[in-house]
């Protein structure tokens, strides 16, 4: 069954004087999806996000949330969306508690609900120990969690995260990803931008690749990977100080073989073959050669391959 469309961009363009930041982009995100929005710096990710959260109002095209034009229903949209900005800061005199209280009240939460939400968020983000600490003294990881926390105060149905994992150490990044996954399980629709491909692959079930203001490709990680054909490639690694199977080149299915090092073979198969039969044939031949196999793998294109194809090597 097709899920409800939660966010829809229809022919959206945005220019900053001479610079075309978004060039007629159209895409939709279904309810409950985790949509990873990737692209190099300056691709237009933050502009897209700022249009969605209502910070940029002057643009061409339409943006809909649950079928309603956000330009005409601005006040309602504030209640639906929680926004974790990439750069925004808090006034330094605030404590974590004070920041949550101010932004909770501004999100129109009554005192009772606000206190219970603060408790929930402190628990979710592990910020309970620093509740009364000044924001100026928080670590980078805690600061990002605070940004996430303020976005969640009013229990939004849509969470928009702009580069939420940038600048985090590996352990904070892991914690943050776990929080995002937990939130997604609770039914929140999440749009997050990133240029760290492994993070996007870990979290997102839908990915949009943006380059120079244009959507280059959209799909699930599997769809994106299968859309990128690299041919049939098998990788074999044998135990150290044991020989590789030299007879494989004789097989009719094999086009050519590369040897990156003395224990590894990368076998490129012909395109018009039965892959399953060919794999078992190769495996049999390797066994006959008495090779001590450590690794046998049918190589699939990585998200990085797909990304590089569409952004033309403009990685960060």
């Amino acid at each position: 069954m097709e899920k409800e469309i939660c966010i829809e961009f229809r022919n959206v363009s945005k220019s900053y004087k001479e610079l075309l930041a978004l060039d007629n982009i159209s895409f939709s995100i279904q309810k409950g999806d985790i949509f990873g929005y990737i692209g190099p710096n300056g691709a237009g990710k933050t502009t897209t996000i700022k249009i969605l959260v209502g910070l940029i109002k002057n643009y061409q095209g339409k943006v809909y949330i649950y079928g309603k034009d956000i330009a005409k229903n601005n006040q309602d949209m504030h209640k639906l969306i929680g926004y974790h900005p990439q750069e925004a800061n808090f006034q330094e005199w605030r404590t974590v508690d004070h920041a949550f209280k101010t932004f909770g009240r501004l999100s129109e939460l009554d005192s009772k609900r606000l206190e219970s939400r603060i408790q929930d968020i402190l628990k979710l983000t592990n910020l309970s120990d620093v509740r009364y600490k000044k924001i100026a003294y928080l670590s980078g990881g805690m600061f990002q969690k605070l940004r996430l926390g303020q976005a969640l105060l009013h229990e939004p149905e849509i969470l928009v995260l702009d580069e939420p994992l940038s600048g985090l150490d590996p352990s904070s990044r892991f914690q943050f990803k776990e929080i995002i996954k937990k939130l997604a399980k609770s039914g929140i629709t999440i749009l997050f931008s990133s240029h760290i491909l492994s993070d996007v692959q870990d979290i997102a079930n839908q990915i949009g690749i943006l380059n120079k203001g244009k959507i280059m490709k959209i799909g699930s990680p599997e769809e994106l990977q299968s859309s990128f054909h690299i041919g049939n490639i098998i990788e074999i690694i044998v135990a150290k100080n044991t020989p590789l199977c030299e007879d494989l080149a004789e097989l009719s299915e094999v086009e050519f073989i590369k040897k990156p090092d003395e224990f590894k073979q990368v076998i490129h198969l012909k395109s018009d073959i039965n892959l399953d039969l060919s794999i078992s044939k190769i495996l049999n031949r390797v066994m006959e050669c008495n090779c001590k196999i450590r690794h046998f793998n049918l190589v699939k294109p990585s998200l990085e391959d797909v990304y590089l194809k569409y952004v033309g090597g403009e990685t960060n």
Binding site: Q75, A88, L106, Q150
Partner: peptide, 16 residues
């Protein structure tokens, strides 16, 4: 100072 530190973004995404 607050403009440069993007402080207002957090206010303006709310009914303010």
């Amino acid at each position: 100072n607050e403009k440069n530190r993007h402080v207002y973004e957090l206010f303006l995404v709310r009914p303010v």
